[in-house]
Nucleic acid binder design. Structure first.
Length: 947
RNA sequence: GCGGGGGUACCCAAGCGGUCAAAGGGGCAGGUCUCAGAAACCUGUGGCUUAGUGCCUUCCUGGGUUCGAAUCCCAGCCCCCGCACCA
């Protein structure tokens, strides 16, 4: 454990004690930044930490820029995961209990207490409360500069009232709709299930598939087949039924359907009423004749083992030309014969594939081609058949076109015809819809063990993001926003385009009751769109101890829009008008939101909803101003997951390493927008970096130092680094900021250290320390705070302002000379080595003749004016200047340093050069030198000659 | 499939027409310091060369544009993310 831990703890406590980050309206420019509140069902880990650290860095930077910064945080507890975890614990599921014991152990050392807390989790509210406290702790541990007075949970009454109000606002504009909606549903719990309720839910990826049911007239009924490709109805040659299955004839909406018995459950769940008329074996239907609904062609029902009664209706139609399964099954039966079903071989042979789709790269019967290519044996060769089916489906869907034998659909693209044909049949009463569960592994089971199916939920409520009026508002809002990095603006535009109705209510979980139908809860993303407005008043609600009951629409309308009579509203709330006005003022002070900062993953949902809802509810001047995005994080080279054991809690980082080191690492290891690979080993070495920095400043002394060229060069680079860093932060390019402000300066210091005495060095470090610390405070606030105080300050550096860049110390010539000295030293060493002299005595450094400097200067002057008049220069300087033309061009001269300065630099460095090379250095001028090689000397490239 | 982002030396990662054999960090090797180690500091980290230099081969693969390409264009291969109710 590093001593940094103590420093970090100390300053976190002091910040808290002195309420350093509490922000109230002041006569000062404001900056309002938010990061999405975390879902608090567990401990925060390093992955979360990235977004919060980046946000905090920005908040701190703006604060030090002189803004009044509001950076609030809350806990999101709405939704289903907390309740399903709670249910699992209540049910006594070992896995869940162990997991939560581990998690709670991060914060509690007493085993008994852990046990007690976890048992309390049988109540979902306990989980919400416990972890929202812990998240607060985690964020404080990270050093986040949050105004904690404004903290709230999304299941508390004040917030509920606020969410209700906003839904009423949306409804008033017609942005809320009602309708039916298919969901995954557990037959045993009799409840909707989300991904985390499903056994292995994150691996098997259960979803909902919309199947097309096609009704084939059969006697007085319909044999109802299911498909995903209604357009292939033109190529049907026969129907398939598994002879082993049980089928039923049912009465449904005045029709009779024949389907597999297993279909009944699905129909029931999907809200379809029916009556079973009779039950039969599949075998009874084999050999019967039905009619193709689209062209009344007679079709034979044939047996096939690949048909699964669990999937769809257990009846499928056969399109051997375009469906590999159908082709193979047909081949199988032709080989085997079907006399046992009373079907003659002649009849079987007469069944021939009908080609209906033309696809580039394929012949008339692509299914046959593929089966042959993949060498499919028979209909039980599922792996190959599935592969072929998938491939063909994709190819035909995107590339295929219907052939002339497809009635009015001929010439249509398959992707289009699929829906069109289905709609056509539906209009004739010959098609219907059925939902089916899809997953990589079936059957899909709930954690309770029950089977998961699809149910239709009636009276589901939707937010109508498809509403053009609303979309346009959202577009307009986005238009005036800054997105960092700006490439992502397009992603937002696309998202606004494709977003449509979104179900916004749930039957279970935590959250706010839906105001128009209290049986429903508002879904967890829908309740988190404009809550930034709520932060501006929540602390005042608490302070005034207003009863949540009384928070009616008039209250919110007044606070947010200054609508209505404040006296009346205040009276109803039983508060002073002044207090009510104060709340309104506070909102109007902080809004609009200046920056929302979070991961790119949220663009397609949360962030775009955030835009939609702001655009719908608030007037233009209160629309959000900017969004900053960051990428996701992996750990030790792979996705963070419990099973990989690569999730590192923030508390572990704090207790074993250092949060400043973590902050430095997170902001430096990758550009904010790219995926960051977190490696504990790297973090370890960052701890050392921070420690090194600490000692560097700590050991500095206010020694006087002479303004040598190397020191002036360093100071110039120092302020230039700060200046560039400042510019980088303007676009939230945090990584570049860290590189400039931390690593570059450390590197420059390291090379300076070799050039000057220890006393001088300590003095230089001391000289820059305060300015440096201020620039580093947003990144590593704790260490900076500690060092700031150790330098004798007694304010909080977190509240100090960034220093002015000392422009007068930025001097290009000094940097050039410094570089020159470094080159000189390197060259000297090289030449010495290459000279192969047994016993070198003296290194002559001979500066070029004065006229060469004049020549260079004249040439540069002309170059700046556009063109160099070489002939004129030669005339002026004489023939011996001719070789300099080439040299001048080669060395790309940008600045001329007078010889006097060059000489001064070498004289200053003389002792150092001698020490580094172990040889005596003699400085002379070309004019006075007898050494022939001296003629080669050029400005900033003196001749080196070893004797 | 669609949409977005990528493939850079041992690893991570910058660069996005010349100043690039390619910043920075990590690792590794050598050195200074030390009784020794850790830390710190310095040096090296494609190859061959050289009085401070020059050359060759490199930035997924293959083509192209250009006086000039890691950087631009085309094709291919591969990876990641989103595609909807999950927060």
């Amino acid at each position: 454990m590093s001593f940094l831990r103590e420093i970090e703890k100390k300053w976190q406590e002091l910040w808290k004690r002195d309420r350093v980050f509490e922000a109230d309206p002041r006569k000062q420019k404001k900056f309002y930044i938010t990061i999405p509140y975390p879902y608090t069902s567990g401990a925060m880990h390093v992955g979360h930490g990235r977004t919060y650290t980046l946000g905090d860095i920005i908040a701190r930077f703006y604060r030090m820029l002189g803004y009044n910064v509001l950076f609030p945080m809350a806990a999101h507890v709405s939704g289903t995961p907390i309740s399903s975890i709670s249910a699992r614990i209540a049910r006594g599921e070992e896995e869940a209990i162990e997991l939560y014991k581990d998690t709670v152990s991060i914060y509690e050392s007493d085993e008994k207490k852990v046990e007690e807390i976890v048992m309390g989790f049988k109540e979902p509210e306990q989980i919400a409360n416990y972890f929202s406290d812990k998240v607060k702790e985690d964020l404080s541990t990270l050093g986040c500069s949050i105004d904690w007075r404004r903290f709230f949970r999304t299941n508390e009454p004040y917030y509920n009232k606020f969410v209700e109000w906003q839904f009423k606002k949306l409804n008033a504009q017609g942005f809320i709709k009602k309708g039916n909606y298919p969901i995954l549903y557990c037959l045993r719990c009799e409840n909707a299930v989300g991904e985390d309720d499903i056994k292995g839910g994150d691996e098997i990826k259960a979803g909902i598939l919309e199947l097309q049911l096609i009704k084939f007239p059969y006697e007085d009924a319909f044999l109802v087949a299911s498909t995903l490709r209604a357009e292939t109805i033109f190529g049907v040659t026969n129907l398939w039924i598994n002879p082993k299955d049980r089928l039923v004839k049912i009465l449904i909406q005045g029709e009779k359907w024949v389907i597999s018995k297993q279909t009944l459950t699905k129909l029931r769940l999907q809200g379809i009423n029916f009556e079973v008329l009779e039950e039969m074996d599949g075998i009874q239907l084999i050999g019967k004749r039905v009619k193709n609904p689209i062209n009344s062609k007679e079709l034979l029902v044939l047996p096939a083992s690949f048909v699964d009664p669990e999937f769809g209706t257990g009846v499928v139609y056969s399109v051997p030309s375009h469906a590999p399964y159908d082709y193979i099954a047909l081949e199988d039966i032709k080989k085997k014969g079907a006399s046992e079903f009373g079907i003659s071989q002649a009849e079987l042979s007469s069944i021939q594939p009908i080609s209906i789709i033309a696809t580039p790269g394929y012949g008339d019967h692509p299914a046959i081609e593929l089966c042959k290519k993949l060498q499919v044996r028979d209909q039980n060769d599922r792996e190959k058949l599935d592969q072929a089916t998938q491939l063909l489906y994709r190819e035909e869907f995107y590339e295929g076109v219907l052939k002339p034998n497809c009635m009015e659909f001929s010439g249509m693209k398959v992707s289009e015809a699929k829906e069109k044909v289905f709609e056509y049949l539906k209009r004739q009463g010959l098609a219907s819809t059925l939902y089916e569960v899809v997953a990589l592994e079936k059957p899909v089971r709930c954690r309770c063990g029950g089977e998961v199916s699809v149910a239709i939920i009636p009276d589901q409520w939707f937010l109508d993001y498809g509403n053009e009026k609303w979309k346009n508002l959202a577009r307009e809002c986005l238009e005036q926003m800054q997105i960092y990095p700006q490439e992502f603006k397009k992603v937002f535009m696309d998202t606004i385009d494709w977003l449509h109705e979104r179900p916004c209510t749930r039957k279970r979980g935590l959250g706010t009751r839906f105001p128009f139908d209290r049986r429903w809860l508002i879904e967890s993303l829908s309740d988190s769109t404009i809550y930034m407005a709520f932060y501006t008043i929540v602390h005042l609600l608490r302070k005034l101890n207003i009863s949540a009951e009384r928070l009616d629409d008039a209250f919110f309308d007044y606070v947010f829009f200054k609508q209505g009579d404040p006296v009346e509203v205040a009276e109803r709330l039983e508060i002073n008008v002044a207090d009510l006005k104060k709340m309104a003022e506070e909102f109007h002070y902080w809004y609009p939101l200046d920056l929302r900062s979070t991961g790119t993953a949220h663009i397609q949902n949360h962030l775009t909803f955030f835009i939609f809802h702001h655009a719908a509810i608030f007037p233009k001047e209160y629309w959000p101003r900017a969004i900053n995005l960051n990428g996701m994080m992996i750990s030790e080279g792979r996705k963070m997951s419990k099973s990989f054991g690569n999730i590192v809690p923030i508390q572990k980082v704090a207790s074993q390493y250092s949060v400043d080191a973590y902050r430095l690492y997170i902001s430096y290891a990758a550009d904010p927008i790219t995926t960051l690979d977190f490696r504990i080993k790297d973090l370890e070495s960052f701890v050392q970096k921070v420690e090194k920095f600490y000692y560097l400043i700590k050991n500095s002394k206010p020694n006087k130092f002479r303004r040598k060229i190397v020191i002036r060069s360093f100071l110039s680079k120092f302020y230039r680094n700060l200046r560039s860093a400042f510019e980088k932060m303007g676009n939230y390019e945090v990584r570049d900021y860290v590189q400039l402000v931390f690593f570059n300066i450390l590197g420059d210091l390291a090379s300076l250290r070799n050039k000057i005495s220890e006393e001088e060095f300590d003095g230089v470090v001391n000289f820059i320390s305060e300015d440096w610390l201020r620039f580093l405070t947003p990144i590593i606030p704790h260490v900076c705070e500690e060092l700031w105080h150790s330098l004798g300050n007694n304010t909080y550096i977190s509240l100090e302002k960034l220093p002015k860049i000392k422009e007068n110390l930025i001097d290009e010539r000094m940097e050039k000379l410094d570089e020159f000295l470094e080159n000189l030293q390197r060259d000297l060493v090289t030449v010495l080595k290459l000279s192969k002299l047994e016993r070198p005595k003296v290194a002559n450094i001979i500066l070029a003749a004065e006229w060469k400097y004049k020549f260079y200067e004249a040439a540069l002057q002309q170059a700046k004016g556009g063109k160099i008049n070489w002939d004129g220069l030669i005339q002026e300087f004489g023939e011996h200047a001719k070789p300099l033309i080439k040299k001048f061009l080669e060395s790309k001269v940008e600045i001329i340093i007078p010889r006097k300065l060059e000489l001064k630099a070498i004289r200053e460095a003389k002792i150092l050069l001698e020490r580094k090379t172990g040889i005596k250095v003699k400085i002379s001028l070309e004019e006075k030198s007898k050494i022939p090689k001296a003629r080669e000397a050029l400005p900033l490239r003196p001749c080196i000659f070893i004797e």
